[in-house]
């Protein structure tokens, strides 16, 4: 089973996770820029964070044979802090980087006017830099948040096929399906979505335009739940090819729209981790 996790915050994970992911079949990941638990207070903190997403983190992933890509944005929660707003001026330069394959995570947290503005400004950047957009949906007041999200996406003029609306569930999937946007599902141990529920959604709505991710971060989460979802699909009677479509070909198709998804150094077979080099500097 080859796996492309289209949404995972590796910055918050350990090298042990990289080793387990590689052994489970994960060959490529996209790490969206988001918040870090502790709110940041100045643009410099974002510079260092974004630099890590296009610098150290891809190097770390490569030690385990995993290709690491990123999406860059000012997230909705911190868009509300006036001290962080100048981050919007830093973003364009990152959007030219080879490993940046979308603008994101953008969208809503508490649906404030500040979030409205950051969302629409960054959708316009996605259009300008010819990148897809990764749109987070709020965890509170989600149904209303998804409606408003879809309105803003429509008004922005970005092609719906270049947008993924993430963290969906049984209640919100139908509406997004009808818009032509891609549908993202974050499989969590207890909350957002579980492997058995995901299988039911795939039965009801099909495999087209579906992205399954672990969204693993600093909270309770599990980077192997993509694999567990693939196994649940097989147990429920989906074919190996169906699993490959959902866990590999769909994310390749979505992020491939950036024109930057270079997977040439990704091996197709066998776990690649040889325990070699984050060597902890040989120490």
């Amino acid at each position: 089973m080859r796996i492309f996790d289209p949404h995972i915050h590796m910055t918050s994970r350990t090298t042990d996770d990289y080793g387990r992911m590689a052994a489970a079949g994960v060959r490529a990941v996209v790490e969206p820029a988001f918040w870090l638990g502790q709110p940041r207070t100045n643009p410099g903190s974002f510079t260092d964070y974004f630099d890590s997403l296009v610098g150290w983190e891809p190097f770390r992933a490569a030690q385990f044979g995993i290709r690491h890509f990123a999406t860059i944005a000012l997230n909705p929660k911190e868009a509300n802090d006036p001290r962080c707003r100048p981050v919007l001026e830093l973003i364009p330069r990152y959007l030219d980087k080879d490993s940046v394959v979308a603008v994101g995570e953008i969208g809503y947290d508490a649906m404030t006017p500040e979030e409205d503005e950051a969302f629409s400004v960054q959708l316009a950047l996605a259009v300008e830099y010819e990148l897809p957009a990764l749109v987070h949906t709020p965890h509170r007041d989600k149904a209303q948040g998804v409606k408003r999200t879809l309105d803003v996406v429509r008004e922005s003029g970005i092609s719906s096929g270049r947008v993924v609306v993430d963290h969906l569930n049984e209640v919100t999937v139908g509406e997004v399906h009808d818009t032509g946007c891609w549908m993202g599902f974050s499989i969590y141990p207890d909350t957002k979505m579980s492997p058995p529920r995901m299988v039911e959604i795939l039965r009801a709505h099909g495999l087209e335009r579906v992205l399954v991710n672990s969204a693993a971060d600093w909270g309770k989460s599990d980077p192997l739940l993509t694999r567990r979802t693939g196994e649940a699909m097989l147990e429920a009677g989906f074919s190996e090819d169906d699993v490959d479509r959902v866990l590999w070909r769909n994310p390749v198709e979505f992020y491939g729209q950036s024109g930057r998804l270079d997977l040439s150094e990704t091996a197709d077979t066998g776990p690649l981790f040889e325990g070699s080099s984050i060597l902890r500097g040989g120490s």
Partner: peptide, 15 residues
């Protein structure tokens, strides 16, 4: 050079 340097690998290899 700012944008050309970043995008070079998408137009010419080796970048």
């Amino acid at each position: 050079i700012v944008r050309l340097f970043a995008a070079a690998g998408r137009h010419y290899r080796p970048a």
